[in-house]
Design a protein around this nucleic acid. Sequence first.
DNA 1: TCTGGGGTCCTAGGACCC
DNA 2: TCTGGGGTCCTAGGACCC
Length: 426
Amino acid sequence: MLYNKNKIALVDCNSFYVSCERLFNPSIAKKPVVVLSSNDGCVISRSTEAKILGIKMGEPYFKVKKIVKENNVKTFSTNFALYGDMSRRVMETLKQFSPQMEIYSIDEAFLDLSSIKDEDLLEHSYKIRKTILKWTGIPTSIGIAKTKTLSKAANFIAKKEKSGVIDLINSKQIDKLLSRIEINNVWGVGRQLTKFYIKNGINTAYDLKKMHNGWIKKNTNVLGSRTAMELKGIPCVSLEPHQDKRESCSVSRSFGRKVTKLEELSEALTTHCLNAAEKIRLDKQTVKKITVFIRTSPFQNNRNYYANSKSIELPIRTNDSIILVKKTLNILESIYQKGHQYQKTGIVFSDLKDVDVYNTNLFSKINNEEKRTKLMKAIDYTNIKYGRHALSIAQAGVKKIWNVKKKHSSKIDTACFQFLPTVRTT
DNA sequence: TCTGGGGTCCTAGGACCC
DNA sequence: TCTGGGGTCCTAGGACCC
């Protein structure tokens, strides 16, 4: 069912990962802070102070190391268990403000505010911000408009405003605000479209809004024209309050150092496969198609770049770790080539379905299926209770010398009392 | 020396059919 | 010798998002 509400708020957490780290470390408030991606590779979250220093989103860490040192920027390795947990708390709080809400990413959600009177929208939004901050400690920004794309735009401006809220529904200055947004910052306009638009003199959100539909349709695709329509205030992307299960599930990691041997690749890939299998079991899903990929670093121009991937369809869908690992390693062997310095490997499970969906073929006779299901349940239970990979299988290895680097971890675990912040009352 | 990871959606083009 | 055209379905890869 398509239903478009005409008052949509986008609530977005400010510098989310940095804000999470700050919760447990008040001494870094108002100081420059960055959070690094896996392997401490890139900057993926920056405090306002770090942005001012010129540290860009997605920049490789080694390129900003100098700025970091000179300005005493605090750095953190990712702690997704913490961010995921904080995200759940923020979303739980947000839910109270609208029955219809779409969680869009780990740090943002669209809210249907159609039931709020126009004149109360601002007040309502201030209340949302205040409550989230009070209950979770996370600062947010809110943009309200008639379409999702416009509420994204409003949010973009709101991030720069002290009030933290921009309401485009009551605004007579929409065009003025839109002309402050560079075209690459429009939701749905990525690198390729940006190139194309700038070549054609479209430099801001407002420029795109002014373009004729015919031209956009002819020169881009349905997504391009959808974005342009939404900027004009015509809803094309509806709010999706009911979130379906995932359609694919992937686990991949870069190595902490280069890897050449098949055995090491096998260990890493087995670990990824076990993680992915556990994820789909938790979601009560089975997989039909497995893709494995390996590659060397694309950034080292002097070496031969090698990247390869291969997919197979399973005869019977499953979520059994033992079967999946076996198949996965077979694929790996078929694409592995000696003599390369591998930088990354990963696995993708696709064509996922609910466990109760048709699970056998005409010729299958799985007599120990029940036993296996019980074994998987036991493994998952043990790993949840005693920590990740308390129980694993031998191919995953024990030493894991290929494992990722994590020099700056805050090691905060929200499920652990030791890390609860202390509050003193006088 | 050092460049993330996990998703979704769309489309062009091939295979196949009549 | 001359060798259609239109429809559907599927998939790999690209573009985009955070």
